[in-house]
C-alpha cells in the first residue's frame, strides 16, 4: 500500500553520479558524524573520569594520589551507604519497570485515536514533563507537607485519617512517596513511545483478526503486543537504565534523607564528588552505575533485537 502512496506523493529522483562511493564505506559514512561527536564530547570526558577513579583526589588540588582499585573495593567492602543506595536503586528500578510502563501502555491504548478529547488527554498526561525540576520539587513538597499538605488533608477528609503520615519525612515512606511523584511526572514518556509504536501496526491485522472472530483481548494479545515488541525493548530498557541512574528527583525531593534512607547511587555519587570532595571515589561510583546498567541492559537489548 505504502509504495503507491509514497510514489504518488514523493517521486524518487534518480540522479546520475560521476563517481560512486564504494558500497562498503556507505554505512560508516552515515555513522561518522555521530561517532565523532559522541567520542569527543561523551566518551572522552567519561574516560577521563575512569582515569580519575583510580586516584584519591579532592577534585581541586593539583596533586592526585594513585590508589589503584581501592575506590572500587571500598564501594563494595566498606561503604554501607553505597549498599543501601544500591538496594534503593533495585527497588526503584523494579517499580519503574512495572508501574509507569503499564500505565503508559494503558493510556496509549485508550488515547490512540483521532479525537479532540484524546489530544487534550495526551497533553495532560505528558504535561508534567514540561515543568522544570524546581517546580516539581516545590509543589510535591507542599503536597506531601505533613502539616498543610493536600495529600494528608484529602486523606483526612475522606475518612482515611490513619493513612495520613509524614511522607517524605518518614523513613519508610520517603522513597515510595518520591516514586509516586516519579510516576506522575514520567508516565507520559512510555505513553508517547507506545503511541508512536502503535502507529507502526497495520490496521489490516486488526481487521483480519476481527474477521477471524477475535475479541478485544485476543486482538490485544495477538496483534497489539507482538506489534509493540520493538517499543517494549525501548521502554523497558530505558526504565532499567534510568532506574539505576535516577538522580534529579531524589536529590530535589528528599536530598537523600531523612537520615540516609533515600540515598541512591546517583545521589551518593554526587554527594561524594561535589560535597565531600572525593572526586576519585565519586568517579568510581559513576563507573559502577554504568557497569550495572550495561550488564543488565545490553544482553536484553541484543537478545530482543536480533533477527
Amino acid at each position: 500500500m505504502s509504495e503507491i502512496t509514497l510514489g504518488a506523493r514523493r517521486p524518487v529522483i534518480v540522479r546520475r553520479r560521476r563517481w560512486r562511493i564504494p558500497v562498503t564505506a556507505i554505512p560508516y559514512l552515515f555513522l561518522a558524524p555521530a561517532t565523532l561527536w559522541y567520542a569527543a564530547f561523551l566518551v572522552y570526558p567519561m574516560l577521563q573520569s575512569l582515569y580519575v577513579s583510580f586516584f584519591d583526589w579532592d577534585g581541586l588540588s593539583p596533586t592526585m594520589t594513585f590508589v589503584g582499585l581501592e575506590n572500587y573495593i571500598n564501594i563494595f567492602a566498606v561503604d554501607e551507604v553505597a549498599r543501601l543506595a544500591l538496594w534503593n536503586n533495585i527497588l526503584w528500578t523494579i517499580g519503574a519497570l512495572a508501574l509507569p510502563t503499564f500505565f503508559g501502555l494503558m493510556l496509549a491504548l485508550a488515547l490512540n485515536r483521532r479525537a479532540p478529547a484524546s489530544t487534550l488527554f495526551r497533553t495532560i498526561f505528558y504535561s508534567p514533563a514540561v515543568l522544570p525540576l524546581v517546580a516539581v520539587g516545590l509543589i510535591w513538597a507542599w503536597m506531601y507537607n505533613p502539616h498543610f499538605g493536600v495529600v494528608n488533608v484529602t486523606l483526612k477528609a475522606v475518612g482515611l485519617r490513619s493513612w495520613a503520615n509524614g511522607w517524605l519525612s518518614n523513613y519508610e515512606m520517603a522513597l515510595p512517596a518520591t516514586f509516586v511523584t516519579f510516576i506522575w511526572s514520567h508516565v507520559g514518556f512510555p505513553m508517547i513511545f507506545y503511541l508512536a509504536g502503535l502507529q507502526a501496526i497495520s490496521k489490516d491485522y486488526y481487521e483480519a483478526a476481527t474477521i477471524d472472530g477475535a475479541n478485544a483481548f485476543q486482538r490485544f494479545r495477538h496483534v497489539t503486543m507482538p506489534g509493540l515488541a520493538e517499543t517494549h525493548v525501548i521502554v523497558l530498557s530505558l526504565a532499567v537504565i534510568n532506574g539505576f541512574k535516577v538522580f534529579d528527583l531524589v536529590y530535589t525531593m528528599t536530598y537523600g534523607g531523612p537520615g540516609r534512607s533515600t540515598q541512591v547511587l546517583g545521589t551518593w555519587m554526587y554527594f561524594q564528588t561535589f560535597q565531600y570532595y572525593h572526586a576519585g571515589y565519586g568517579s568510581a561510583l559513576a563507573w559502577v552505575i554504568a557497569a550495572i546498567v550495561l550488564v543488565i541492559a545490553i544482553p536484553y537489548i541484543r537478545r530482543m533485537s536480533r533477527g
Partner: peptide, 12 residues
C-alpha cells in the same frame, strides 16, 4: 515541634 518535619524545607 510541628511534627514530621525531617524532610520539610527550612523555608516551608
Amino acid at each position: 515541634l510541628v511534627p514530621d518535619f525531617l524532610n520539610v524545607a527550612p523555608n516551608d
